[in-house]
């Protein structure tokens, strides 16, 4: 490749710049006419600029090698530039509001949190039970020694629920429907189920008319036992990879379940394409 005479910067840049400008303008107008929002248009235009930088860099003349302390300085400056670009990019991209998540966690962890009095009482009770367990274990050991074939299971230490370090949410007195909306939000039901007329494609069935199709007991059963029944057209998802998680019986409290189902029962938009429930033969609520 060294057979060619070195080009000037102007020779290197001119046609690339023209191509980049044409590409940027084309990307802007084509993506705009296809209905892409402005932020996407800017992203595609920035790729035209990145392309220009890359293709200019490919043909750029060799820089003078840095030697000794200048090389060290060059490395430090390069790290600083890389760091500044990455921090800027990370900061400029949309950020979520941590306060929303913190409030959600406070609501979701109510079931795990205990007041100081409850903790003290629990610790006292644990000590008593522990002493009793030791006593029982000793007795069982005596029985074993006497020939009885019994096994004493090891008592696993488990982390006691701790008193709240962060303030727990005050949920008493809240309207159950409003509370249910928060549960729908907190447990990320929206990631799979469409409500509120959003157009995006979801993995699970649309729930906008579920209030007309299922009873309170059936909905509660479905949330805590996802395999209990399924929505028509979602036979594959009921068993396959995209099946509804079976964790809600463990991570959701009864209070949350009640509020969620109260909210779901208010969803009665008959124009919505909510699929019919399919109950297995002989189905009864667990």
């Amino acid at each position: 490749m060294s057979a060619h005479a070195p080009k000037s910067w102007m020779q290197i840049i001119r046609w690339k710049l023209v191509a980049a400008v044409v590409a940027a303008v084309a990307l802007w107008f084509v993506s705009g006419s296809l209905g892409f929002p402005r932020i996407f248009q800017w992203m595609y235009v920035s790729y035209a600029v990145l392309g220009l930088i890359i293709f200019v860099a490919l043909d750029a003349p060799s820089p003078t090698p840095l030697m000794g302390w200048k090389a060290g300085l060059g490395i430090i400056v390069f790290y600083l530039i890389c760091s500044a670009i990455l921090v800027t990019a990370g900061t400029l991209l949309p950020q979520f509001d941590s306060k929303i998540e913190v409030a959600g966690i406070a609501r979701k962890t109510v079931k795990y949190r205990l007041s100081d009095e409850q903790t003290a009482s629990l610790m006292q009770r644990t000590k008593e039970l522990s002493a009793k367990a030791d006593e029982l274990a000793a007795k069982l050991n005596q029985l074993q020694a006497a020939g009885a074939h019994l096994e004493v299971g090891s008592v696993e230490a488990s982390a006691p629920a701790k008193p709240a370090s962060a303030p727990a949410a005050n949920l008493s007195g809240m309207d159950p429907v409003e509370r249910g909306k928060l549960v729908f939000q907190d447990h990320e039901c929206y990631n799979c189920h469409q409500i509120g007329g959003k157009k995006s494609k979801k993995r699970g069935p649309i729930l906008e008319n579920i209030g007309n199709l299922a009873t309170e007991a059936q909905l509660k059963d479905k949330v805590f036992h996802p395999k209990a029944w399924h929505a028509k057209g979602f036979e594959k998802q009921a068993e396959g990879k995209d099946k509804m998680p079976e964790k809600f019986a463990e991570v959701m409290s009864e209070e949350e379940l009640h509020a969620l189902v109260t909210f779901l029962l208010t969803l009665k938009n008959t124009a919505a394409d909510t699929p019919q429930p399919v109950f297995p033969p002989g189905y009864s609520v667990k």
Partner: peptide, 27 residues
């Protein structure tokens, strides 16, 4: 290319969806 330029789905409201999300046929 993301589905939407938002930090979290909770930031995507009906009002700003058209300004931040891909057109539905380019999803």
């Amino acid at each position: 290319t993301p589905h939407a330029f938002v930090g979290a789905v909770s930031s995507l409201t009906d009002e700003n969806e058209a300004f931040l999300s891909l057109p539905s046929n380019w999803d």
